[in-house]
Design a protein around this nucleic acid. Structure first.
Lengths: 188, 188
DNA sequence: CTTGAAGACTTCAACGCTAAAGTTCGAGGC
DNA sequence: GCCTCGAACTTTAGCGTTGAAGTCTTCAAG
């Protein structure tokens, strides 16, 4: 359940090996710390591969990544799984215009309903259908299985260390880039 | 120099805190390992924030992420910084059609040249200009500064451990998802 | 020399997204 | 009650991408 936006493309890019790539960078750019570069490149590459994997699993379920994001956001909102297009757009980092179209599609597929608010007719309410919720559940099961498999080689200690370091990095990037989507208070 | 594809969107998504999000998942989905989830979510979130940061820095330089990817690929190819559109497309994971248009734009901006191969007139050669190379250098400096800053709180030991664990995960995901863009032999 | 087939790139239609303009409804001043 | 402002969503135009069809060149065989 990485909540990553992503692109899987026509097919995955064909990249040089990490070591080859770092060697090439050092050749073209003298002052490069190989250790830093290794961490950053591995991080990016791992994420990309994971996103390709998520995309495939979702495709098997017959839903796109865009749809998965919406389902997830509605479920995370909790019962009764309702949000307005504007709120959805804000949480997904999309424009309201894009949400309009996404909701159109998903309503057509029966994953959500879209109705005018009775009390305020300028508002629209998007609500998860039972089918939408069960698609989410299936996707969730696939995702957690995959994640379990991904981390299978790591001991519990290693998982703990990894998580702790990543959260420190997350805090750092949110200090450095205050408007990059994070809420500083979360981690303090 | 993360070589991530990315989306920065109209603005970054507004997300709940990691802990809030994991708590919500546990509420809606009973059998979830919080430790696994924490690692996976932190990984995804960190990457997204980093990509937003890269995107901003590149925008300051007046180049888009798409352009950055092309510059990087040409530099990594080494002297004389030449590749055909098809090869570029393969390395970037794009369709040849998309490459055609990207190259059009970049040639218009003077970042690359685009010529027919003298010896085989069906082939096209894209070559980095001096301006393109210097843009790449500037971007590279910004990226490495940012990466150095990102990792500033980690000791050298921690960086080593992090890198090592990430590479193990990368190997695992490439075993599990053989066609996700990696080359298995790289890591063995 | 002509023809057929394969390869490399480009063109075209459709799609999803952004930014900006437009529409509709609700709320507050007068 | 009317008017204007603002909020929430939709529509429109433009861009970059994909997938499929099209064009042009090369190579090899007849």
């Amino acid at each position: 359940m990485s909540d990553n936006p992503e692109r899987s493309g026509p097919q995955a890019p064909q990249e040089p090996s990490l070591d080859e790539q770092i060697a090439a960078y050092q050749r073209e750019f003298r002052d490069l710390d190989p250790q830093v570069e290794k961490v950053v490149s591995a991080l990016g590459r791992l994420n990309r591969r994971m996103n390709v994997a998520y995309g495939r699993q979702l495709a098997d379920l017959g839903i796109s990544n865009a749809e998965w994001e919406v389902l997830k956001t509605l479920v995370l909102a909790g019962e009764p799984y309702r949000l307005g297009p504007g709120e959805l757009a804000k949480r997904l980092g999309l424009t309201p215009a894009a949400m309009t179209h996404r909701i159109d599609r998903m309503a057509g597929e029966g994953l959500v309903t879209r109705d005018r608010d009775e009390n305020n007719r300028v508002r629209v309410i998007v609500e998860l259908t039972d089918e939408g919720r069960s698609k989410w559940l299936e996707a969730m099961r696939m995702a957690t299985d995959f994640e379990e498999e991904l981390l299978q080689d790591l001991t519990s200690d290693e998982r703990g260390v990894l998580g702790e370091i990543l959260i420190r990095l997350l805090r750092r990037v949110e200090l450095t880039q205050p408007d990059a989507g994070g809420r500083l208070t979360d981690l303090d």
